[in-house]
Computed example of a mutant assay.
Amino acid sequence: MAGDRDQAIAAAISRLASANNVPVGIEHVCRACSAALGLAGVSLCTIGDLGLGEPIYATDVVSERAIELEITVGAGPGMQALRDGNVVMSTDLSSTAGLNQWPVLVPMLSSLGVQAVFAFPLAAAEVTIGVLELYRAYPGGLPMAALTDGQLFADYATALLLDSDCWRRGSDMADMLGGTLPEQWARVNLAAVVVSVQLGIGVTQAYQRLRAYAFTVDCQLREVADAVLEGGIQFTP
């Protein structure tokens, strides 16, 4: 049965890529997962050089904003899955348990219409390299079959990311990832370097300051990064 589901998922991913006449990429994994499981959206991020995660792809604006909020706050189902390497399921974010666990993040996600989150770590050789995060607009758990499929989609994404040919070909890597998030997030990393010079601190500390500023002024982290790079925001000791 598992083999049949594996083949069905691979076929669904391949159909999306074929429709675009491009090789299979992370975009197709996320889109196929969202469609197959009837989700509000899906995001995928990998472990970044500065800790936490770096978004690679999101199926929609809400998913893109949700994963960025998690990274900005530094907490949430996806960040916990990255740290612990275990599947994290929050079936009702507005519940007492959800609010107690992520008191800062939950109201933000609720304002986006996200009521349940399921985070599947992308792991290889017991090392977590990323997370596939599923969002729903209503509370409740996923059926067992959907949980199994979610893990299969995560496994497919892991294999795709670890494909040595993809990483070695360089220019093909952008095609495999899809979207503009990797390029945009590279600017966040660059802004952290600028802030580290301005404040005379390490890049990791500067990244924390950048995230804290974005949270304080209620702006997207990428918008703050752009402002730093353009000279509109300057950090002083």
Rank of each mutant, 00 (worst) to 15 (best):
221 L>G: 05
184 Q>A: 11
209 R>A: 09
227 A>Y: 03
192 A>D: 04
199 L>C: 02
217 V>P: 02
186 A>G: 08
213 Y>P: 01
167 W>F: 09
191 A>M: 14
231 G>V: 11
223 E>A: 14
190 L>Y: 14
203 V>H: 01
166 C>F: 04
235 F>Y: 05
217 V>N: 06
210 L>N: 06
169 R>D: 14
196 S>E: 06
234 Q>M: 09
171 S>A: 14
223 E>T: 14
208 Q>P: 02
225 A>R: 12
233 I>S: 03
194 V>K: 12
204 T>H: 07
212 A>F: 01
211 R>N: 05
196 S>A: 15
181 L>E: 10
175 D>E: 13
217 V>S: 09
198 Q>G: 00
194 V>F: 09
225 A>F: 10
170 G>S: 13
235 F>E: 02
192 A>K: 00
217 V>E: 14
195 V>S: 02
209 R>M: 05
228 V>S: 02
194 V>P: 00
216 T>Y: 12
233 I>Q: 03
231 G>W: 11
228 V>M: 07
226 D>V: 07
183 E>A: 14
214 A>T: 10
177 L>T: 00
201 I>Y: 02
168 R>Y: 14
188 V>M: 11
234 Q>N: 06
227 A>D: 14
212 A>E: 13
184 Q>K: 10
166 C>A: 08
206 A>Y: 08
214 A>G: 09
179 G>P: 01
176 M>Q: 10
176 M>W: 04
231 G>H: 08
192 A>V: 03
197 V>Y: 05
195 V>N: 02
176 M>T: 13
182 P>A: 12
216 T>G: 10
201 I>H: 04
185 W>I: 08
232 G>T: 01
229 L>A: 05
209 R>G: 01
181 L>S: 07
179 G>L: 13
190 L>N: 08
174 A>K: 10
190 L>A: 15
201 I>Q: 07
187 R>G: 02
176 M>A: 11
171 S>H: 11
197 V>N: 04
192 A>N: 03
194 V>G: 00
203 V>C: 04
232 G>K: 03
186 A>L: 15
232 G>L: 06
218 D>W: 00
216 T>C: 06
176 M>H: 04
190 L>T: 15
195 V>M: 08
220 Q>D: 15
208 Q>A: 09
168 R>K: 12
236 T>N: 05
234 Q>V: 13
210 L>K: 07
174 A>F: 11
199 L>A: 03
178 G>W: 01
235 F>W: 09
166 C>S: 05
218 D>F: 03
204 T>N: 00
204 T>Q: 09
178 G>V: 06
234 Q>S: 10
174 A>D: 15
177 L>Q: 04
206 A>F: 01
187 R>F: 14
187 R>M: 15
229 L>P: 02
216 T>P: 00
190 L>G: 01
198 Q>A: 04
166 C>N: 00
190 L>K: 12
168 R>H: 12
187 R>N: 07
205 Q>V: 03
228 V>A: 10
175 D>P: 00
200 G>L: 08
236 T>H: 03
188 V>P: 04
174 A>E: 13
205 Q>E: 14
196 S>K: 03
